[in-house]
Every structure is written in C-alpha cells, then in structure tokens.
C-alpha cells in the first residue's frame, strides 16, 4: 500500500513537471504559436497508447501459449489503458487542428487509422463482455487481440498509401524535418511521465482484474456448495 502511494506521488510529480515543461520551458513554435504546446500531450499519449497495445499483444500471445489467467488480466488492463490514451489523442488532435488547419477533422491517414485502431480495441473490449465463461473469454479475446494487432500495420499502410494531410513525422521523419533540441527534450520527458502514468494505471487495473477473478471463483464455489 505504502509503495503504491509513493509510486502515485512520483507519477503525479512527473506529470506536474511535464506540464510545466510543456507550458513554460519549451519555446513557442514560430508559425502555430501557443496552440502547438498541445503537441506535448498529443504525441506522448499516442506513443503511450501504442506501448499499451503492444503490451496487450504480448499478453495475448502469452495467454494463448501458456494459459495462465494473469496474462489475460494484463491484456484487458493494457487494452483499456491504451484505449484511454487513444481517446486523449483523438480529442486533443481536433483541438489543435481547428485553429491550425481550420477544420476539426479530416479523413487523413493518421487520424483515420488512429480512429480505426480505437474501434478495433473497442470491439475487443466489447467481445469480452459477451462471453461468460472466463477461460473461453480469455482465449477467444486473446485470439481476436492478436488478429487486431496484426491488422494495425495493414490499416496504417492502406490508409497512408492512398491519402495524407497530417504533418510529417518530426521524430525519425524525412530529412529536413526535426525539432528544436529543447522541444525534443520536453517531448521525451512528457513521454516518460505518460509511461509512468500508464504503468500506474496498468498496475491498478491488473489488480482489480485479479480480485474480480478471485471473487468469481469464490462465488462459484459458494453456489456449488
């Protein structure tokens, strides 16, 4: 319990520093102005969401091959956390786009594929609510999770090949793209803070799932008795 409180305080401090750095340390972008600072929430959230979905995919694989319930708990925890971060990305994107592009939404490659990604994991969580038996739910949702994750690069590829308006990647992007060193440092610091938040949420959600499973077993036993 004490350890969890300490971890929560550390993450909170990290988030506070990240917010300060994003608002006051990073230089104001020349053409977009202050609104560009949402970038420090938007991009780290996206990276964190991908990290969570990748953890979900690994947990799905582990469950299929090992059949230990804990992998299922990790999978559902990371899918939910990833979905929350993707929602942040989908909400902050239009807030930035409206003043800069003049529109809230455009059917561009990265927006559209993020939306499809969001839909895929919503269906993953939906599927889980529709299967009663825990083992079957774990196995079938793990398999769907694997198919969904394999689908993600294909979704990105398909949509990216046929249209795009989103700003080109500034990290590992084409030559000529790039960030001011301070901006880059703030960006990565924000990402670390987000990863801390993700780990905290993941841990809480995992424990909740473990308790639920335990409760389920106790309930079944009492019903059988």
């Amino acid at each position: 319990m004490v350890r969890q409180v300490i971890a929560a305080v550390v993450v909170l401090l990290l988030m506070a520093f990240a917010a300060y750095a994003a608002l006051f340390v990073a230089p104001t972008e020349r053409s977009m102005g202050v609104i560009q600072r949402i970038f420090y929430l938007h991009v780290p959230s996206a990276w964190t969401a991908f990290t969570a979905f990748f953890i979900c995919f690994l947990a799905n694989l582990q469950y299929v091959f090992r059949r230990q319930p804990r992998w299922d708990w990790l999978a559902v925890a990371s899918a939910e956390v990833g979905l929350a971060f993707t929602t942040v990305v989908l909400v902050t994107g239009p807030i930035w786009a409206h003043p800069v592009w003049g529109i809230w939404w455009t059917w561009d490659a990265r927006l559209t594929s993020t939306f499809v990604l969001w839909l895929l994991y919503v269906s993953y969580l939906l599927l889980r609510t529709l299967i009663e038996e825990p083992d079957r739910r774990a196995l079938l949702s793990a398999l769907f999770g694997i198919f969904a994750f394999i689908d993600v690069p294909l979704v990105f590829g398909a949509i990216r090949w046929w249209r795009t308006q989103h700003p080109q990647p500034v990290i590992l992007g084409a030559p000529g793209s790039g960030l001011h060193p301070t901006m880059r440092a703030v960006l990565f610091f924000c990402w670390i803070a987000m990863l801390g938040l993700m780990t905290l949420l993941l841990r809480q959600r995992y424990q909740l799932e473990a308790m639920r499973a335990e409760l389920d077993i106790v309930r079944r036993e009492s019903e059988a008795a």
């Binding site: 895929l120 269906s123 599927l127 529709l130 299967i131 009663e132 198919f147 689908d151 294909l154 979704v155």
Partner: peptide, 18 residues
C-alpha cells in the same frame, strides 16, 4: 459469444478496413 448476430459485423468490419 452472446449477441453473435451483432457481434460479427462489429469485429469484422474494422478489421477489413484495409
């Protein structure tokens, strides 16, 4: 699963975007 008639399109259609 339950609600299978609704579930299949929900699972399949986003997967078939590409």
């Amino acid at each position: 699963a339950r609600m299978r008639e609704l579930l299949l399109p929900l699972l399949l259609l986003p997967l078939l975007t590409p």
